[in-house]
Computed example of a mutant assay.
Amino acid sequence: MELAEALAGTAALLGEPARASMLWSLLDGRARPAGELAFAANISAQSASNHLARLLEAGLLAVETQGRHRYYRLAGPQVGMALESLAALSPRPQTRQLPASRGTPESLRHARSCYDHLAGALAVTLLRRMEQDRLLSLQKRDYRLSEKGESLLARFGLDLGALRGAKRRFACACMDWSEREFHLGGALGAALLEEFLRRRWLLRNPDSRVLQLTPAGRRGLRESFGVDC
């Protein structure tokens, strides 16, 4: 009976059209702010806040805080699997197309500095490739290097011992505001950006945080990390 009641409670949460639309909008794995989720569900910001609070309380959503902003994502792959299973039994929810990041120059979205580490689409692609190649793995909000990762980054010229001894987190997940996925922060993220700049794979723009990817950088990232950009 307790399991049946719990199942009925979860089904009731998913059965509300606005909440279903917001959850479906997060199925791609990206994190989104409340404003975009309200737009997807065609509801007011206040109503969206109430729905999001209920979904968080039920454990269906997780929230990441980045500065003054809060980004929502599915709490885990099991939530996505449940949504896809329900979609196989019913018509797909009709969600409105989400707006692009208006007013954001494409160069800024592609590559920029985030404090002292790399951000933007390039940073997200690099981190995703490092995870796929099992160079590192995410545990809560911190990354751990595998033996393969340790070897590759040591050959790349990073002093991992010194980075671990720094008075900051070694490698952490940092939410990318334009891509709505994680990029690599912490001492390791900063060291990678510093090395990319030293090798002139990336060049700084003196007037902004935009970073320019050079032809040498394209070759280097492909040869060293398997990243095509």
Rank of each mutant, 00 (worst) to 15 (best):
E2N: 11
E2I: 12
L3D: 10
A6L: 14
G9L: 12
T10Y: 13
T10G: 01
G15W: 07
E16Q: 15
R19P: 06
R19F: 05
S21M: 15
M22L: 10
M22P: 05
W24K: 00
L26G: 00
P33G: 07
G35I: 01
G35N: 12
E36I: 08
A40E: 04
A41E: 04
A41R: 03
I43P: 01
I43N: 02
A45Y: 09
S47V: 14
A48F: 05
A48D: 08
N50V: 15
N50C: 09
A53T: 14
L55E: 05
A58N: 01
L61G: 01
L61M: 05
L61W: 05
T65G: 06
Q66M: 05
H69D: 13
H69K: 11
R70V: 12
R70C: 12
Y71W: 15
G76V: 08
V79D: 06
V79C: 04
G80S: 12
G80P: 05
A82S: 10
L83N: 06
A87S: 13
S90P: 00
P91C: 08
R92W: 03
Q97C: 07
P99G: 01
A100P: 14
S101P: 08
R102G: 09
P105N: 09
P105Y: 07
E106W: 08
E106V: 13
E106L: 12
E106R: 14
S107R: 15
R109C: 04
A111S: 13
R112L: 01
S113V: 14
C114F: 10
Y115G: 02
D116N: 12
A119M: 02
A121H: 13
L122H: 06
L122C: 07
L122G: 08
V124N: 00
L126S: 04
L127A: 08
R128N: 12
R129N: 05
R129I: 10
E131A: 02
E131I: 02
E131S: 02
Q132H: 12
D133C: 11
D133R: 15
R134P: 02
L136I: 03
S137C: 07
K140H: 14
K140Y: 11
R141F: 04
K148I: 09
L153D: 04
L153F: 12
A154V: 06
L158E: 06
L158W: 05
G161M: 03
L163H: 10
K167V: 08
R169T: 15
A173Q: 07
A173R: 06
S178R: 09
E179D: 02
E181H: 04
F182L: 01
F182D: 09
H183F: 01
G185P: 06
G185C: 05
L188N: 07
L188Y: 09
G189H: 04
A190F: 01
A191K: 01
A191P: 09
E194S: 12
E194W: 00
F196P: 00
L197H: 04
R198N: 11
R198Q: 13
R198I: 08
R198T: 14
R199A: 07
R200G: 10
L202T: 02
L203H: 06
R209Q: 11
R209W: 00
V210W: 05
L211Y: 05
L213N: 02
L213I: 10
A216L: 13
G217C: 05
R218F: 00
R219M: 09
R219A: 14
G220Y: 02
G220I: 02
L221H: 04
R222S: 15
E223Q: 14
F225R: 00
D228G: 03
D228F: 10
